[in-house]
């Protein structure tokens, strides 16, 4: 059974942080949700619960980072990228301090809590901050790698996480490289470039499309900044159609990032974006909300069929 992204994250914090005294973990009273609480159980002396005060937490993290520590900052993605942003911008982006901002419950994964708790703009916000790197893992194995990478790499980073179980995309032990997208399924008629949950939704879509004799390449672009420009160019040239897929507003996120690359390289490929179409989606079961927002596997199928002739 696949593991939830939050469990994978919390366990990785323990695994890679318990013996590294540089690692400190902060939370804003949601450690049982973000699973940063697992680190508290193992290393209580390096865990700091800052209460429901995200702005202060982000500032405290910066102080740690300025004093040789590697702080992991935990709360819901929507709250840290709004209430915490001033300190994140001043100290992480401008002062290049190695803060690791972990946005839990990204996208609509906190589905029942409703639109106030969904995060549809965090990738856009964090991508716009100079010096910040932005990642969105798609399964347990990649999440574990990402935590290790965040410890080993001195840049300010945003880790866009999720609440739920995502199907395993990779074998345990698979290694990754920052800025290097992964082809997770080969295909020739179009490429779906996805991140996070949408990688497995795209893989499901590819299965459905295969029955219609449409062959879809699926690319996992977990490293949104820096982004793999060569892979984007290669896919556009080789398959002639690009569909981006993200659990995020269609503005400012992965779709925009890929479009920027295509435009910059002057590649006039067929192109469309799968994402939440500039609206809020309300409360409900995660799969219902995905279907309503048009970001489930059928949403991806429909998008592909806009660009490629489907029977």
């Amino acid at each position: 059974m696949a593991k939830s992204i939050r469990d994978a994250y919390g366990e990785a914090l323990v695994e890679f942080g318990k013996n590294d005294t540089r690692v400190v973990v902060l939370d804003a009273d949601v450690s049982s949700s973000t699973k940063s609480g697992l680190f508290y159980k193992t290393c209580p002396e390096r865990f700091f619960n800052c209460g429901i005060a995200e702005s202060n937490m982000a500032g405290i993290a910066a102080g740690f980072a300025a004093t040789g520590k590697i702080p992991f900052v935990n709360t819901f993605a929507v709250f840290i990228t709004s209430n915490g942003l001033n300190a994140i911008r001043t100290f992480g982006s401008y002062s290049e301090l190695p803060v690791k901002i972990a946005g839990a419950y990204g996208g609509i994964s906190d589905s029942f809590d409703g639109s106030t708790h969904h995060s549809l703009e965090d990738i856009a916000i964090m991508r716009a901050l100079p010096n910040f790197k932005v990642f969105c893992p798609c399964d347990e194995t990649q999440t574990r790698w990402l935590v290790k990478h965040a410890i080993d790499n001195p840049d300010p980073m945003y880790l866009r996480l999720a609440r739920n179980e995502f199907p395993d995309v990779y074998k345990r032990g698979q290694s990754f490289e920052e800025g290097r997208a992964m082809i997770v399924r080969e295909g020739k008629d179009a490429t779906v470039i996805a991140c996070g949950l949408m990688v497995s939704n795209a893989l499901k879509a590819a299965e459905i499309l295969e029955r219609k004799n449409i062959s879809i390449r699926v690319v996992d672009i977990f490293s949104i900044k820096p982004i793999d420009e060569n892979m984007i160019e290669k896919c556009a040239r080789e398959t002639g159609a690009v569909i981006t897929a993200e659990e995020h507003n269609i503005y400012g996120g992965l779709g925009s990032a890929v479009a920027e690359v295509l435009a910059k390289k002057g590649i006039g490929t067929k192109f469309t974006m799968v994402g939440v179409n500039d609206r809020h989606v309300g409360s409900g079961p995660y799969d219902t909300l995905q279907a309503y927002a048009g970001i489930d596997a059928y949403g991806v199928v429909n998008a592909v069929c806009k660009l490629v002739e489907c029977n």
Binding site: R46, M57, G59, F64, A66, T67, N86, R89, F91, Y94
Partner: peptide, 25 residues
């Protein structure tokens, strides 16, 4: 200059992080 500043309100938070790091070390 030990810490960037300008946007008001966040310097005390950063100070707390430094103070806690001192204590840990």
């Amino acid at each position: 200059v030990d810490m960037t500043s300008g946007p008001l309100g966040i310097g005390l938070s950063a100070s707390i992080g430094i103070a806690l790091a001192f204590r840990l070390d």
